[in-house]
């Protein structure tokens, strides 16, 4: 399927006190209709900024610098005015966030807020909008939708508020839904329902989804494709099944090794595998691969030249000089994990 969103060589710099800091480097991604792309990576790796660059909801007060290209439905978004972007955000691209409370006004009922949104886009009466709002809630499987419309946000559980946000986000039948850690604050049973709702909407409406999470388990279960980010770069991308079955980048392998499993416990003296060192600050200039200082397989070339993309299988890209010689690494990391 033709991708609906094509990001090519995207770069982003944000203004800070002492000039500009470079946040994203050479990010290229594709998302197809009816498909879920997972963005995964350590905190601060640039997942949210990639999403914000697409919607242009960037924290730079207009002084941010975007480079490269973002093609959405065949149109170049980086050239659009703020006014055009506003229209696109209300119509073609929707976002849901980790904490739906921050997007809901505490002093108005859910019904009032939903109908306000509907009525800014459609010339219909409050009563008609209320009916539409009820349908929206029913479409995200909320029972007694009419009662929920009379509730204030604080009267609803976190899972229910996230359902309301998904209902609102999908009401304009967006072509692209960006979900930034939508289930991070929810318990596992509610999370499973929300994941199902997102997947169902994606398949039923043909919505393309960018799903951001640091939970590799969640990403592996619901995404069709996945991109692993590190310090503002993509380090590995491909079909989710391929990336999780045969991770090629030492960073992806390290992340997978760090996931706690039911078989380990601190009481039994087990240690969790943690990647040594820390993520480099985005402002830190580096000649070679940004993961090199923390990578157990780094050689001279890794410290001097940035890695280019290598196709290791159908659509499976890895940005690593040594992905082949590092291949036995997975054993080494697992060994380290076991030994620790």
């Amino acid at each position: 399927m033709e991708p609906i969103l094509q990001i090519r060589h995207l770069s982003l710099s944000l203004p800070v006190k002492k000039g500009m800091v470079s946040i994203l480097h050479d990010v290229s991604l594709d998302v197809a209709p009816g498909q879920i792309l997972g963005l995964v990576g350590e905190s601060g790796s640039g997942k949210s900024m990639t999403a914000f660059a697409v919607t242009r909801l960037l924290p730079g007060g207009g002084h941010e610098k975007l480079g490269g290209s973002i093609r959405f439905c065949g149109e170049e978004l980086t050239e659009k005015s703020e006014k055009d972007m506003q229209a696109i955000r209300g119509r073609d691209i929707s976002m849901i966030f980790q904490e739906p409370m921050t997007c809901l006004n505490p002093v108005f009922t859910i019904g009032r807020q939903m109908t306000d949104v509907i009525m800014t886009h459609q010339k219909i009466s409050r009563a008609e909008a209320m009916k539409k709002a009820e349908d929206m809630l029913a479409s995200v499987h909320i029972r007694q939708a009419a009662d929920v419309l009379r509730c204030y946000p604080y009267e609803l559980s976190g899972g229910m508020r996230q359902r309301v946000m998904i209902g609102i986000a999908l009401s304009c039948r967006p072509k692209l839904l960006i979900a930034d850690e939508p289930t991070t604050a929810l318990d596992v049973t509610v999370q499973a329902k929300i994941l199902y709702l997102i997947r169902e909407a994606c398949r039923r409406l043909g919505t393309a989804v960018i799903f951001i999470s640091h939970d590799l388990g969640v990403i592996s279960q619901i995404c069709d494709t996945v991109a692993v980010m590190y310090s503002g770069h993509i380090v590995e991308a491909g079909k989710a099944a391929d990336v999780f079955e045969t991770p090629e980048h030492p960073y992806t392998r390290a992340l997978m090794a760090a996931v706690p499993k039911f078989t380990v416990s601190a009481a039994a003296g087990d240690r969790l595998f943690a990647i040594p060192g820390i993520v480099p600050d985005p402002s830190e200039a580096m000649a070679g691969c940004r993961f090199a200082p923390r990578c157990p397989f780094a050689t001279e070339i890794c410290r001097t030249a940035p890695p280019s993309d290598t196709l290791t299988g159908a659509g499976h890209l890895v940005y690593c000089h040594n992905w082949q010689s590092a291949a036995p690494a997975i054993g080494v990391l697992r060994g380290k994990e076991a030994e620790a």
């Binding site: 609803l156 999370q191 499973a192 994941l195 388990g217 592996s220």
Partner: peptide, 24 residues
């Protein structure tokens, strides 16, 4: 048990929740 089964893990297929609906 329900909680444990809902934990997403790499290599474990997505388990469709028994009851997808939610009420207040």
């Amino acid at each position: 048990r329900e909680l444990i089964e809902a934990v997403p893990m790499i290599g474990k297929p997505f388990r469709m929740p028994d009851d997808i609906a939610e009420s207040v």
